[in-house]
Design a protein around this nucleic acid. Sequence first.
DNA 1: TTGAAAGCGCTAACAT
DNA 2: ATGTTAGCGCTTTCAA
Lengths: 339, 339
Amino acid sequence: MINENVYKIVSLNKVAERAGVSTATVSRVINNSPNVNPETRLKVQQVIRELKYSPNRVAQRLRNRNVSSNLLGVLIPDIQNPFYVEVLRGIEDVAYENKYALIMCNFAQDERKEMLYLDILQSESIDGLIAAPTNEHDQKVINLVRRGLPIVCVDRGLSGVDVDVVLVENRVGAFSAVDHLAKTGYKRIAYISGLPQIPSSQQREKGYLDALAANGLAIDRNLIKYGDSRHESGVKLCEELLGLPDPPDAIFAGNNLITLGALETIHKKGLTIPGQIAIIGFDDMYWSISLNPPLTAVRQPAYEIGKRAAEQLILRIKDPSRSTVSVILKTELMIRSSC
Amino acid sequence: MINENVYKIVSLNKVAERAGVSTATVSRVINNSPNVNPETRLKVQQVIRELKYSPNRVAQRLRNRNVSSNLLGVLIPDIQNPFYVEVLRGIEDVAYENKYALIMCNFAQDERKEMLYLDILQSESIDGLIAAPTNEHDQKVINLVRRGLPIVCVDRGLSGVDVDVVLVENRVGAFSAVDHLAKTGYKRIAYISGLPQIPSSQQREKGYLDALAANGLAIDRNLIKYGDSRHESGVKLCEELLGLPDPPDAIFAGNNLITLGALETIHKKGLTIPGQIAIIGFDDMYWSISLNPPLTAVRQPAYEIGKRAAEQLILRIKDPSRSTVSVILKTELMIRSSC
DNA sequence: TTGAAAGCGCTAACAT
DNA sequence: ATGTTAGCGCTTTCAA
């Protein structure tokens, strides 16, 4: 358990000793305090370089609870989903620019894992958190907000508390997809939903329903399938749909992974797209054009979502009392050849 | 700058006070020390629950430099590459099982970013690091190894130091791909390489060259293109290749992203695969079957790589003096219809 | 079984 | 301009 090999880290003390000054002076140098004699500063910097000293952030953080830890937490549901990867990239770029490092917690849609990670994040005394909680009533995250930890929610809000949110017009996006399907002439349009407790799934369902209604299409509950937002459930639910006595002529897939799963099933069955079955996805991927056939999809500006979220978070960290905002981004229908 | 809104965290002190015991006793309780009177323990636990106390890991770490911080660093070159995402998943699963959290550093192939992150990781006093450094001579990582920080390298080794490594038979994998191409009858086989300074790129090139030789095919240097391992360079280099006066009849793409980029170019030009141009990729993706056409590829066991790396790392953390190992995993040729 | 106290590395008064 | 010192929250001897 004990690491005997532990590598000795040079401490402020050693630097002070070697430079013949007090620890306070060294501290001032590393924090760029102006009140240091230029010569002293030079000497100290020299020693720092010699000793390859770098300040212990753990100690810094313990000391300064109210000052930046330069750590941001990111809590995402599923790193296998390219959408979240793009969001993460956006966050990461902004974080890096502002000298924040990221503690990344992928809870893989497992609530226990989410709990553990939130505990860790909290006790690491992160500066702020970007989270896509399991659902709007996530008590753990709500408590964190109440306690004053700067938080920005992504892709879904939080009910009962005031919190910054960055999301996308899910209902509108879904509507545009299903409307496109209907206008193209499809009559029996199915919806494969992600986890139904996630607000975005619900809003997409609403968009789907609204579009059917707007186009005078009947709602057939058998054509709505609920899954868990993962590839596997796309595969399975698409099979169920295609096995129906009266199968759909088009599928609206609730997210990335479901689309890919559904595609897999369709190809395994040797069906032609869009001839025998049309498909449209929520979430575009940069390789959608190379899919068979090039996929028509509702594009969410994922990178932008992450970027905005990180920017909001940093603003909030700097000024915790600023009023909360909801950033709502638009989706875009990318029409290719799958419907 | 100062966060006036700072949320008060309950400290050991408060718990001790409230429970009418000393801080030492509370500490013993949270660390499951056996030397605590059962009644006292119960009372303390009660108070802990009441106050929703959770120990401050920062303080714990500062105190116990030689004891687990339960933080692992992960340094990966490109989170947009699905290969690394899978590796990350493997790492993450093992880390979670062992109650480690991950500080994820995506350096996006930017050396300055890598430096910054390594500094942060070091000063966060992580327990260990899983890294895929820019190249074998990465001084920063080499220094870390020398200082005794437990490190496992992924996808590439480190020259001059003894370090645990998990990688894949790159040469053999590339050979099998190009050999398959040659045996299928392709004569002018191109190679689009990732960053040429990365050992795996070099080994794949070697496999490519060997396979050409083994099949009596001439080497045409014009058919070897070097890029930066990203989607964009797949797009561009494939264009160059197809624009050649004497273009290739097959392309071996050095990784995931390059394959997707090349595919994009081929589709934009309206060429048929494999009729007008065949393609085979290094790195399989779970949606390869849904590509147009279903992609033939060399599969690396990415999840397994991550899993093994994390396992090795945890072993090394527990016993820093154990001798280093190289885990070398096999690739697998997934034959579908792109060549 | 419990408590008192030192100290991990650092910063911010306060003093000089 | 610089040094002295207290203390962040915790664990761990050492004593009782």
